[in-house]
Design a protein around this nucleic acid. Structure first.
Length: 883
RNA sequence: GGGGAUAUAGCUCAGUUGGUUAGAGCGCUGCUUUCACACAGCAGAGGUCCACAGUUCGAGUCUGUGUAUCCCCACCA
């Protein structure tokens, strides 16, 4: 006899079952199974990261989809992996070096890269262990890492391909320079933040005149790199100065006063200092007017030797020094408070310094065009749809992508420069001579590639691209990508572009953007706020199934998820409920008698209703999952199990189970097990552990398949599940009567234990139904006696419930509080009266009958009549109270 | 500055193409410790669906305006 413990122990069960799944290889995807593939790419987490509730929720959604498809008979592949996370990892390693009192410079490149690898080996696996704890059903045999040899090979291939097509080029540009990390970063790694700054006003003397030109700036220190002052060509105040020279204070250089329509006369003084090497706008103006570019900063954002010694300090100190110096010269005019938005580095949080440097770029325009098309014509869909606009907006205004990073951790740029000529050499193997002049004096670029330049190949490289592997042919394109909206540009858009470029097909047809997980105040989880929830901690407390269930139940399509640690209690209760329902059924199961197949001719009304509910629920779940409305699907599972199965199905079964008829007992258990089996299947993708634990104890039901694990058992198919719509509607009527009696009982303060008698006046069909369900009604409503008739005479003193198609009387001598009952009936009469009045006036409106569709009018009439009957019934009962 | 989203019960949210008496979970109140489960059962209270105007026989649902909150994008020194 199978043991059924009094309570489900997640800790014990989870480890055991995950090992069991691994051992049986149920998550492995095979190319040769003949099944249709369903492929999902796991967005590779950074090797450095820890599992947080964002992963917890987003990845659980993926797991649900994958498990669901697997059970539906697809060859489901969920591909796991990690990302080397260039900047993040390098930052972590540098920090730990700093603690040791050393630095990457002291260590040297080779040793430093080794340290990064060690770091990855040590900490890289932690998040994956946490994924196992979450029960994720990925194919671990296929795990990929962006620095794996064959993935690195793919990176090199795409670089070489794009370079040869002229889509990768080197240029001196103003890039977003992170002075802390000392590398350029892409536009997408920059975040604008509003800061309280100042606007300072200075005077620049005009050469050969006593006049001054006043300028305003938020960054006085950059004036040392000014190479012009610009005014609007139509600005009358400055017409006479255009073409003259100003003497740049402190630097003591002559700079021209130029006219450019970029300048807004109404802002500041209408005259702008131009620093082409340190401001993106000034850079453009500098190019237009062929101005000199003077770079006055070192990589760490201290001012360099292009400026007088006094100012060679960190940029913000230099700023103060410049102001002080201008005051000394009496050129300082005034200071105003000013709110402005400044670019900050996403990683180091430091203010970005626009810096002139030589970088490698990808020309994105050509790559973007097909990626725009697929989104527009629906080959690529977004869920929720509104993200399509965001995607298209970015694609249509795409900037070239700076892919070089002045880091050591990453894929080194496969370009060799020549000492003899200006040749750039690349190729799939390291060259030994310059491709242009054949010189052997060549050296490789010191920089590495942006991490995203490897992650954009995620739909390709793990499957073996650029080789034409069977895996690639089989699993590409993948099906759905589930990820956070923050990385639509960084990742989703770029994967789409490179997928189309290399394969001609978008790498997925659906993109599901997850909601952001926030605390109850709607603030994003952040380390500094300390408002985050540690998934491992809540798993420890409530179990993985509870965490998975709660996380996805709270997650609507898009938007925000407000989450608190105590929310997971709800999931825990649900797990407990399922466990106990199963345990109850087990108590009545006799292992010596085999389960019977479903026999529709022998089913009771309530059983037909329950089976019908199951079919309806399975259909809803299927529909919701297809639409990626995972929270709604989970909600349906919850209501089916708790509301329909436990509250009604199991309760009504108790009559037979606790009765004496052994045949009826066996038959009832068989029906319950059939439904339970289906429900475990239905819930398995969401709560894989508790469902498997129960399912393994369950004897095989002849109505179901029995593979080694529930994870690969057939998902309930709404098209083949039996349905009994008529019986379901009939049982609904019985439920109404039961609910009415319970309500009356509760309002009269009669304890549940106290048996009552009830008399129901109803139509012929109702009488037949209630007679058939006599035992059920008596049990569920707590009756010692139930009498039904069409022409039932109202007993004397009684409580009454008047509903649709029936009137119930409960003799209440000694129970009845006349005053209270009168208040209740008055309330009911008022409520029904109001509804009736509304319906009457609707029907009285001539244009309603005229214009509303006939079925609506018909329904309204029927409802009006129903209300009329109910109202009359209530009034009779009210007057009878006087008896 | 541009674009987008949201506003429904104390809280978090459902509410499909306009059409029966606007729903759920949590919380709250009352009754019940009946042998699956008190992590439970049963019953109940609680909503002028942000405001105003409009379209319509009919609006939580469609349109406009306003208000509030949030997000994304953007080079005004």
């Amino acid at each position: 006899m199978t043991q059924f413990e009094a309570a489900f122990d997640p800790k014990l069960s989870e480890r055991k079952l995950y090992d069991f799944w691994m051992e049986k290889g149920v998550f492995k995807a095979s190319r040769t199974s003949g099944k249709k593939p369903f492929t999902v790419l796991m967005p590779p987490p950074n090797v450095t990261s820890q599992l947080h509730m964002g992963h917890g929720t987003g990845y659980t959604m993926q797991d649900i989809l994958v498990r669901w498809k697997r059970m539906k008979g697809f060859e489901a592949l969920w591909l796991p992996g990690t990302d080397h996370a260039g900047i993040a990892t390098q930052m972590m390693v540098e920090k730990s070096l700093e603690k040791e009192g050393t630095s990457r410079q002291k260590l040297g490149r080779v040793a430093f890269v080794k340290r990064c690898q060690d770091w990855k080996e040590k900490y890289g696996g932690m998040i994956l262990d946490q994924f196992r704890a979450m029960g994720f059903s990925c194919d671990w045999d296929r795990i990929a890492y962006t620095m794996d040899p064959h993935l690195s090979h793919a990176v090199r291939q795409i670089f070489v391909t794009l370079f040869n097509e002229g889509l990768i080029y080197r240029g001196e540009r103003l890039v977003n320079w992170d002075p802390v990390l000392q590398t350029g970063i892409s536009d997408d790694e920059v975040e604008s933040k509003e800061v309280n700054g100042h606007l300072w006003y200075f005077n620049y003397p005009i050469e050969g005149s006593t006049e001054f030109i006043p300028i305003a700036t938020t960054r006085p220190e950059t004036m040392l790199g000014d190479t012009a002052v610009a005014v609007n060509p139509d600005d009358e105040r400055y017409q006479h100065l255009i073409g003259k020279m100003a003497r740049l204070p402190l630097a003591n250089r002559l700079i021209p006063i130029i006219a450019d329509s970029y300048v807004k006369s109404e802002f500041g003084t209408g005259a702008v200092k131009i620093t082409p090497a340190h401001d993106p706008n000034d850079f453009e103006i500098g190019k237009r007017h062929k101005l000199p570019f003077i770079d006055i900063m070192n990589p760490d954002a201290t001012l360099n030797d292009k400026v007088p010694e006094r100012f060679r300090k960190p940029r913000f100190e230099a700023r103060k020094e410049v102001i002080r110096a201008l005051k000394e010269l009496d050129l300082f005019v005034k200071e105003e408070s000013y709110k402005t938005t400044l670019p900050h580095s996403e990683r180091s949080k430091e203010v970005i310094e626009p810096r002139l440097s030589l970088q490698w770029f990808v020309d994105m325009k050509k790559l973007a065009a097909p990626a725009i098309d697929v989104a527009k014509d629906g080959r690529l869909k977004f869920h929720p749809d509104l993200w399509k606009k965001t995607y298209l907006h970015w694609m249509e205004n795409i900037h070239d992508w700076n892919i070089s990073r002045q880091l050591w951790w990453g894929h080194r740029i496969p370009i060799w420069y020549c000492k003899k000529c200006d040749g750039h050499t690349t190729g799939m193997t390291d060259p030994s001579q310059c491709s242009k002049c054949r010189s052997t004096e060549i050296w490789q670029d010191e920089d590495v590639l942006d991490t995203w330049f490897s992650s954009w190949l995620w739909p390709l490289s793990p499957f073996g691209w650029p080789d034409k592997s069977n895996d690639l042919e089989h699993f590409y394109p993948t099906d759905v990508l589930v990820t956070a909206p923050e990385i639509i540009f960084l990742w989703v858009a770029r994967m789409t572009m490179v997928g189309l470029k290399t394969r001609g097909v978008a790498p997925f047809h659906d993109v599901f953007l997850t909601a952001t997980v926030c605390d109850k105040q709607g603030r994003k989880f952040s380390k500094t706020l300390g408002n985050g929830i540690d998934p491992m901690e809540v798993i420890d407390r409530h179990g993985t199934d509870a965490v998975r269930f709660t996380a996805v139940q709270l997650a609507p399509l898009g938007g925000r998820i407000k989450m608190a640690p105590e929310d997971f209690e709800a999931g825990g209760r649900f797990v407990n409920k399922i466990w106990n329902a199963a345990r109850f059924i087990f108590n009545y199961m006799d292992q010596s008698r085999p389960l019977q197949p479903l026999d529709a001719s022998k089913l009771s009304l309530s059983e037909k209703w329950l089976l019908n509910e199951l079919a309806v629920a399975a259909e809803s779940v299927d529909k919701m999952l297809h639409a990626y409305r995972i929270n709604d699907a989970v909600e349906h599972v919850y209501h089916m199990i708790w509301g329909s199965f436990c509250d009604w199905g199991v309760e009504t079964a108790k009559n037979a189970l606790q009765g004496t008829d052994q045949g009826e007992k066996d038959r009832t258990v068989s029906v319950l097990v059939y439904v339970l089996d289906a429900l475990l299947r239905l819930a398995s993708p969401v709560m894989p552990f508790v469902t498997e634990e129960i399912w393994q104890k369950l004897p095989k039901h002849p109505g179901w398949d029995r593979p080694v694990s529930l994870c690969i058992a057939a998902y309930p198919d709404p098209t083949t599940l039996p349905r009994f719509p008529e019986a379901a509607a009939q049982w609904q009527r019985v439920q109404d009567v039961i609910a009415g009696i319970r309500s009356v009982r509760s309002q009269a303060g009669v304890p549940p234990k106290q048996q009552l008698e009830a008399y129901v006046k109803t139509d012929t069909a109702g009488v037949t139904l209630l007679k058939a369900a006599d035992a059920d009604v008596r049990r569920l409503a707590g009756l010692s006696k139930l009498e039904t008739a069409v022409d039932l005479k109202r007993p004397g003193q009684c409580l009454a419930d008047v509903g649709k198609g029936y009137e119930t009387y409960v003799p209440a001598a000694g129970l009845l509080d006349v005053a209270k009952e009168k208040v209740r009936l008055d309330g009911e009469i008022a409520r029904i009266g109001k509804i009736l009045a509304g319906l009457e006036s609707k029907l009285g409106n001539a244009s309603f009958a005229d214009r509303a569709p006939p079925d609506v009018v018909e329904a309204t009439v029927a409802q009006r009549d129903n209300m009329k009957t109910q109202l009359a019934g209530l009034k009779i009962n009210l007057s009878a109270l006087a008896d």
